[in-house]
Design a protein around this nucleic acid. Structure first.
Lengths: 212, 212
DNA sequence: GGCAACATACCAACCAGTCTGTATGATAAC
DNA sequence: GTTATCATACAGACTGGTTGGTATGTTGCC
């Protein structure tokens, strides 16, 4: 379960531990990140850590939740949300993702959800399930706009908004992975443009495309 | 560097160790797989392991190479290679991937390249680079057919075969990741169909599509 | 007899988690 | 308003198990 309302009132120390966990585990993964590292990174000692978390595992759950909530919040507040046309929101989302990734030069730090899904799915059922939920919610977020846009502009078109949304989540996650290996975000940028082009073909040329 | 010609003549014991490494690390990742596990899985003791490998790290490199070579061999031998029409080969590849994944029910064990890329890119430069090379080669394999097909059927079309190939690698890797988290291959299957649909839009309706 | 191909025992480092201690602030008693 | 009580929030030393790697055999083949 990803609990909302967990953001507002975290003790300072606990929040620092979670943040350190997010940062370190994004880069090194779960197993390669030690509790001691998290502690020193957060400026806390072991006593502090285990005062707030029963185990390393539990911190990982908190880190995943915090990471997801943070991203969800970013997207909830993003400018493209205010667009009235659903298809504008779809393309606006792509623009927003591109912008938040930064230029091809800037290194992306990776997605904690993807990291955990890859590393822990076969060994940690709880975290696997949490990753699944986070990924599905991300897809669902796009799906809503896609359903609306389809009803409005291409009601008879032969595509499934849910599947297209999962396709979106897939190439983003895969793009992040390839970007890590290639030490370049160029792939991610290009992927988004390919997806944009695909969406344009699905919606015909009924609408103007996203800018830039 | 991924060395070819490493497949033919491996000592039986060494081969078993590498195979065990591939199997275990595909599921659990690098850090969560212990040398002892690999040994017992291969029916060898520690002495045997360190007789053939200087370190766990070196086995991982061998495992990655073997995994890639195996996959490359599969694709090199696949029936779609014999098709004379490049666009047929492109769609034939998609059919082949679908078939080798199996039905949505069957669980995919994941791609070692993706696992290593995710887990080790920031901590192990050598393996990161090896993953990059493996991913790029995979993309390049499709790219060749795509270039030919474009020259033949859509020479003026506005798409970049290299970028489309990396898009392909991305959604496959991302699809595998999501499939792990969701414990279902359905996403992968759907992704391939979406990509097929995208390719059809890129090539217009000039050619028949790949068969089911 | 010498070397490759292992087996077995062993070790030192590491690491998640524990235990005990202490500082601080709230609360209650008087 | 001062002291006793207690809980929270940590600090820091410690531990037991794990793990990558080593050192020392032993066996069979050329």
């Amino acid at each position: 379960m990803i609990t909302r309302n967990s953001i507002p009132e975290l003790p300072e120390t606990k929040r620092k531990l979670v943040d350190a966990g997010v940062t370190l585990m994004r880069a090194r993964g779960y197993n390669a990140t030690t509790v001691d590292e998290i502690c020193s990174n957060a400026g806390v000692t072991k006593g502090g850590f285990f005062h707030y978390f029963k185990s390393k595992d539990e911190l990982a759950k908190a880190a995943l939740a915090r990471f997801y909530e943070g991203k969800a919040q970013d997207f909830a507040d993003a400018p493209f949300r205010k667009l009235v046309d659903p298809l504008d929101r779809v393309f606006g989302r792509l623009d927003y993702v591109k912008k938040s990734i930064g230029g091809p030069a800037q290194l992306t730090k990776g997605c904690l959800i993807g990291v955990f899904a890859q590393e822990l799915s076969f060994t940690n059922p709880e975290l696997r399930s949490a990753c699944q939920e986070a990924l599905l919610r991300t897809a669902n977020d796009l799906e809503k706009d896609l359903v609306e846009a389809k009803a409005l502009y291409a009601p008879t078109a032969d595509f499934n908004p849910k599947k297209v949304s999962l396709f979106y989540v897939s190439f983003i996650q895969g793009g992040l992975l390839v970007a890590k290996a290639a030490e370049s975000n160029a792939v991610l940028m290009d992927n988004i443009e390919n997806f944009r082009s695909y969406l344009q073909s699905l919606f015909g040329s009924t609408k103007k495309v996203g800018k830039k």
